[in-house]
Design a binder for these strands. Structure first.
Lengths: 338, 338
DNA sequence: TTGTAAGCGTTATCAC
DNA sequence: GTGATAACGCTTACAA
């Protein structure tokens, strides 16, 4: 087991000073051809690699970025992560990832942990609990220390930093308009609690589309499901006790579940009821019928977030924070009439 | 923007020495109550936190573990990752994650990057290309430097280290036996290239089950699909030109695709053809019909891998490497006859 | 052309 | 009870 070799060892071995070795390995002009050759050869032989930690301490940067997301087993987030990872990798950054599990406490803990020198900046999407409590002190703290943060998807106006979001309201508006265009008039919204900024924005787009089309806006046609729990009962009841011919769902799972319930009740999709979901994930592509959906372009979001962050890390720009808006794309499949 | 405060600053401010501050903050008995109180109060006020990087350099450990997986947008891997993250978090470790994208080169690069002091150990699942080339020098190198590595799922006998795998052969055997038990005799296998150890193991279990039941083993009933590309044509041809009444697929997507093709050809699932897939992912639960599948217990795999790794990091054990075998569970849904 | 020394933030050893 | 010093591995003025 040959441990990693250090400058000091090379220096001792070759009977030169540490700084000579350091310079030689950087091909410095200061050092003679001979010495450089000798040192470089030796270094190559022993496969010398500078120690990242020592470099970080010296340079006061880690070339790491911290990503904190609510859930990793989740198509949208992994997709964003892929975008981050790819861009960061190209720029020579590594990614440390922490999962908040939708918990405020874990989000805070993870941020504090990584903020103690482990990363040069953060990319994060707020946990459900954080959005519910509306407490962003941990983020402000980190920002106050001069560590840049980029928020994506689940963001808050209360935090001043760079952000990447979807045009949730507009694209929800579009989606509903499409369904209205195909003759639907009793349109429902299946959503989560309103403290999710994305849900609330989508709801606004939904309502606006209905009103703009002079359709009756009926509060009863909004089903709020508990985030990440079953709620199958609620769905059944909802579709039994209401007359509905089109549904917008704020995520893919809700859509799949609702389609399932409705089809079991003997209705045809899309003839009797059409569906549009959010998140163009794997489920949408393989459901029966295939689900029309709003693609959120997670990879692009991730890439954009990483770009904003690295920009700020490297160029220590001024305080005019940017918000990049990614345009969703409505992908029509078999759950809507084309 | 108040930067993080350091020991040195506290020392200067309070007119004591750095070492006194350090000790005081560790509540050392050496320091007087008074001094400690003063220093601790000050530290709390300025929210002092020790710098992780400096600690790493000093202690020669980073409390980071590196995870390298072929793909992040993939249910099984994210599931394993969640297990790793949870266990590691509990043990005070952070996780750095790199994606090899099924590329040998990226796998090597990522390992080298992180091996330069950034992590205390690795958990990794081999990329497709690495398995194909059968080149594991990068891993042996890292092991040679005394950095522990745990391989999971996609492993190789050529690397001596701790491993976590599924009982692929046995559970594939089980799955086929179940289909045989329900009267099926023309059983097909849909798989990937054989250099994937998991596919090859599952194929062995498949063959053994067929032979043990005294059924004819027909090479033609094995469809090898290109990993991660379409192959829809191949699937159609395969099911058109062969008489098949049951199918074992080495992953979920293959199963869903095949079910779809077969159903479009007018066959009923499971009456005419039954299906069992691997990876109890989200697709299986929501497909039509719901897919029977082998749960790989990714989370448990991840947790086990993390445990093996951290054990080795902290206890620098001897060279008797362990291989933990996770037992898959056959989950019967509607794509098989119960 | 090479070497010395200071510094990054921390801790541990030893001296006062 | 407190402080100076060295060390972790590396870089970079500055001396020699």
């Amino acid at each position: 087991m040959k441990k990693r070799v250090t400058l000091k060892q090379i220096a001792r071995e070759l009977e030169v000073s540490v700084s000579t070795v350091s310079k030689a390995l950087k091909n410095s002009e200061e050092i003679s051809r001979d010495t450089k050759d000798k040192i470089q050869a030796f270094a190559k032989l022993y496969n010398y690699r500078p120690n990242n930690i020592a470099l970080s301490l010296k340079n006061k940067n880690t070339k790491n970025i911290g990503v904190i997301i609510p859930d990793i087993v989740h198509h949208f987030f992994t997709t964003v992560f892929r975008g981050i990872e790819q861009y960061a990798g190209k720029k020579g950054y590594n990614v440390m990832i922490c999962v908040s599990d939708e918990s405020f406490e874990k989000e805070v803990l993870n941020m504090e942990l990584l903020a103690n020198g482990s990363v040069d900046g953060f990319i994060l999407s707020l946990s459900a609990e954080t959005q519910e409590r509306n407490d962003y002190n941990h983020i402000k703290e980190v920002l106050g220390q001069g560590i840049p943060v980029v928020l994506f998807d689940r963001v808050s106006k209360d935090v001043l930093c760079d952000k990447v979001i979807l045009n949730d309201q507009e694209i929800a508006y579009e989606a509903v308009k499409v369904m209205i265009g195909s003759g639907k008039t009793k349109i429902a919204l299946v959503t989560t609690e309103n403290y999710f900024n994305v849900s609330s924005n989508r709801a606004q787009g939904f309502e606006k589309a209905i009103r703009d089309a002079n359709l009756a806006f009926d509060e009863n046609l909004i089903l709020t499901l508990p985030y990440q729990s079953e709620g199958d009962e609620l769905i059944r009841d909802f579709f039994e006790s209401n007359t509905i011919d089109a549904v917008l769902c704020v995520n893919e799972i809700f859509a799949i579940k609702c389609m399932d319930v409705v089809q079991r009740q003997g209705k045809r999709v899309p003839e009797d009821i059409s569906f549009i979901g959010f998140t163009n994930g794997i489920l949408s592509k393989y459901s029966t019928p295939r689900l029309s959906t709003v693609a959120q372009h997670g990879e692009r979001m991730g890439e954009t977030a990483a770009k904003l962050l690295i920009d700020r890390i490297e160029n220590d720009v001024d305080d005019n924070f940017r918000t990049e808006v990614i345009s969703g794309t409505l992908i029509q499949r078999d759950s809507t009439i084309n």
